[in-house]
């Protein structure tokens, strides 16, 4: 597994995808920063709090940019083995298909967490530049926890996107799929159903923003069921798939 993981990292050498993904991860903090600067200039005397900025940025990351960005990264990791015709080289070594799959998942998790930290770090840096108020260690740690929880759950929810990639072996269906997920996020983002929809439930859990009508466990069940089903079907498909 260590060798597989090492090779997964090596495959990223000189790849522009890492840089592009960082730029993608910077989008939400930057947009929020500009929005708050604008607000600050219009409403002088009303302080912009770090707590608010962190929370708002995480909302954008989890509900909007994260789903698509992490979906694209997951698609890139799996799809390139088909488009670059390298899968047959690896499988005839032979490399265990499950180990191969798992090594990609580990890399994906690391990548998503890295981008999460980038988003968190940039929010902090932009906040310092904008001289936002209310910064404390407690705020920082709370925000960091929320970001990491959001990142981990979004990682779990890449399973259906990976399945779509393995089925279609193309970027387009995966991209359409992640955009559709994001659209639903936007649609139900303000309703109570957001606790049940897996991708919006991530934010509910990260911010502990549950509704009294629904037990928190529903949000967890929604996420874990989607993830587990996605991974199981994806692994079964990948294990049985013929390489043409």
């Amino acid at each position: 597994m260590i060798n597989l993981l090492y090779t997964e990292f090596l495959k990223l050498k000189r790849s522009q995808m890492l840089l592009i993904s960082m730029l993608g991860a910077a989008t939400a903090p930057f947009v929020c920063f500009i929005a708050y600067l604008n607000m600050k200039s219009k409403k002088t005397g009303v302080p912009v709090l770090f707590n608010e900025v962190f929370s708002e940025t995480n909302l954008y990351v989890v509900l909007l940019t994260g789903v698509t960005l992490y979906g694209v990264i997951a698609t890139y990791l799996f799809n390139r083995e088909y488009t670059e015709n390298t899968l047959k080289n690896l499988l005839t070594i032979p490399v265990s298909r499950i180990s191969f799959f798992m090594s990609k998942l580990i890399l994906l998790l690391i990548w998503i967490l890295l981008l999460t930290v980038v988003a968190w770090g940039l929010t902090l840096i932009f906040g310092l530049i904008g001289q936002f108020e209310g910064l404390s260690l407690t705020v920082l740690i709370k925000a960091f926890k929320e970001y990491i929880v959001g990142g981990i759950f979004l990682f779990l929810l890449t399973a259906p996107t990976i399945l779509v990639t393995l089925l279609f072996k193309n970027y387009v269906p995966s991209l359409v799929f992640t955009i559709a997920i994001t659209m639903v996020n936007v649609l139900i983002g303000n309703s109570e159903y957001r606790v049940l929809y897996p991708w919006s439930a991530v934010l509910v859990i990260a911010n502990k923003d549950f509704f009294p009508e629904y037990l928190p466990v529903y949000s967890y069940i929604s996420i874990f069921t989607t993830s587990l089903l996605g991974f199981i079907v994806a692994i079964i498909h990948f294990k049985k798939e013929e390489i043409h």
Binding site: L10, K13, R14, E84, N85, N89
Partner: peptide, 9 residues
């Protein structure tokens, strides 16, 4: 068939 390699390496 055509051998596949990682083009960025």
């Amino acid at each position: 068939e055509i051998p596949g390699f990682y083009e960025n390496l």
